[in-house]
Structures are given as C-alpha cells and as structure tokens.
Nucleic acid binder design. Structure first.
Length: 262
DNA sequence: CATCTGATGTGCT
DNA sequence: GCACATCAGATGA
C-alpha cells in the first residue's frame, strides 16, 4: 500500500467515524440493530443524486462504490472516471431526441436509479440517473480499495488467465468494473440510495482543479456532441481507462495523483 | 506505446 | 438486418 493511499484511507476513516457518531446520536433512543447503523452511516442519501447531470458526474469522483456479495463480502472501489449523458439534445445519449423505450426507461427515473444495459452482446455498462429528463452518468473507472481477490476472480472469466491482472486493470473501463463487481442486468432499475446489495458511500470531494474534462469515449457517430467535454476523471489517476494528456496539461493544478505501477 | 480485429446478441428500424 | 457508451489479444514500432 502506497503512502498516498494510506493518507486517503486515514482521511476516510476520520470522516466515517464522524458520521458514525452523528448517526449514533441521532438514533440514540432507537433500539435498532447495529447492522442498521453499519448500512446507513456511510451511505450517500437520495438527495446526493438529485443534481444536474454534469454536477453529479463530477461529484461522483472520489466517492466509493460498495458491493455486498451474497456471502456478505463487501467490495469497495473509488470512482475515478465518469461520463455525462444529457437528455434529448445529446446525440450520444440513449435518450437522444427524447427517445424513451423499455430499455432506457431508467434514465427518466428518480435520480439515483441504476441503468444497466448490455453492449456488444457480452458486456454490461452501469449508469446512474441524475436530475434532468433522460440524463444519466456512466461509471467508467474505479480504483479498487477492498476485495482485490474477488474482483480478480470475477474478471478472470473469459480471459486467458495466463497472467494475473494488475490492480489498475481490474476496473479501468465501464464493462470491466461491472465484471469486477459482478453487476449484471439484475441490477437494472435498483436505487443506489436504498438497495441492499449496492450503494455509494462518502469518500472525498475532488476539487475542480483536479478534475480533467475531455471528450467521451466510443461515440464517434454523435456529430458535434462527439467532442464536447462530458467525460471527467481525477487528474493523474493511474486507474482511468483512457487518459488525455492534452486535457490534463490544460488543468491548472500542481497536485496530481501519480502512483507507481503494480 | 499505437492501431487493428474478432467475439457476441439484444434492441431497435 | 444492423448498430453498438467494449475488451482482449495480436502485431508493429
């Protein structure tokens, strides 16, 4: 574990124990199982998701996605890359032109609703509905925090398995993270603010200075929308799917998140 | 590092 | 029928 990551972990622990205290005080008189505290203390609430698409895509950076497996094991990874898909006018969005079908209905649902769709027959991508009609945020890359072995196992599926994956290869792509977290179509339509098996917990806020904004990936067909800066990632992160050095250099910040390869 | 290609099947036209 | 918000492996520099 690098010094950097240790520092981040410490920051998290501080935040977590703070919130723990607050919740404990709030529920002092209630005799609710401690399990309840475990789940509610860190979970980001419904109101967190109720913001405009671009704001949400940026606020996701630094937050932690948690997945509870059937056996109780919890996987954790920090969101480091997202994309905004706006409503009707966005030619790259599944909701372009106000299109609304059975497949993309979740994009129009309550902010925080998960939209999972299958792509190229074999992969899944996970989005979260935001404020705005037909708007959603695509999760593109995560930095693994807890559960490396499980993620590696879920990811070994259709590959050679000749060489073990590096940590940074576990979740550096929208479908890779779905594999690593074992997220499939059954997660479609669930609510991140209340679901038992998946949720977001407070990590840290990434300052605007440390966010790279650039073009989205894989939407070359979208005309003028192809080059709009609707992809966001933490500057310097080694866990991002595709880095854009040009865009990184135009971000006015001295600090980066460079880390050694693993 | 960059670029290319095959895999694969659902949802929409 | 065809397009597709991808990935892994191969190849060349």
């Amino acid at each position: 574990m690098s010094a950097k990551r240790r520092r981040m972990q410490l920051l998290d622990d501080q935040k977590i124990s703070q919130e723990e205290d607050e919740v404990a005080i709030e529920n002092e008189k209630d005799s609710v199982a401690s399990k309840y505290f475990q789940k509610t203390k860190m979970r980001l609430p419904s109101v967190f998701y109720n913001k405009p698409c671009i704001d949400l895509a940026k606020s996701f950076l630094g937050q932690v996605l948690v997945r509870k497996l059937p056996d109780g094991t919890e996987l954790r990874a920090r969101i480091v890359e997202t994309e905004s898909y706006l409503g009707g006018e966005d030619e790259a969005s599944h909701s372009r032109g106000g299109k609304r079908t059975e497949r993309n209905a979740q994009m129009y649902m309550k902010p925080g609703t998960i939209y999972v769709y299958q792509i190229y027959g074999i992969y899944f991508c996970m989005n979260v509905s935001s404020q705005g009609d037909g708007a959603a945020v695509l999760l593109r890359s995560l930095e693994p925090v807890v559960g490396f072995d499980e993620m590696r196992k879920f990811r070994s599926g259709r590959r050679n398995a000749s060489k073990p994956l590096k940590d940074k290869e576990l979740c550096n792509g929208p479908s890779k993270l779905c594999q690593a977290f074992d997220i499939g179509k059954s997660f479609n339509c669930r609510d991140l603010a209340s679901d038992e098996d998946i949720w977001l917990e407070a990590g840290y806020e990434v300052p605007e200075d440390n966010i790279v904004s650039c073009a989205r990936i894989g939407i070359a067909y979208a005309g003028e929308w192809t080059h709009k800066p609707l992809r966001f990632y933490i500057k310097g992160s080694q866990y991002v799917s595709v880095r854009n050095k040009t865009a990184e250099n135009s971000v006015t910040s001295g600090e980066t998140n460079s880390q050694e390869d693993k």
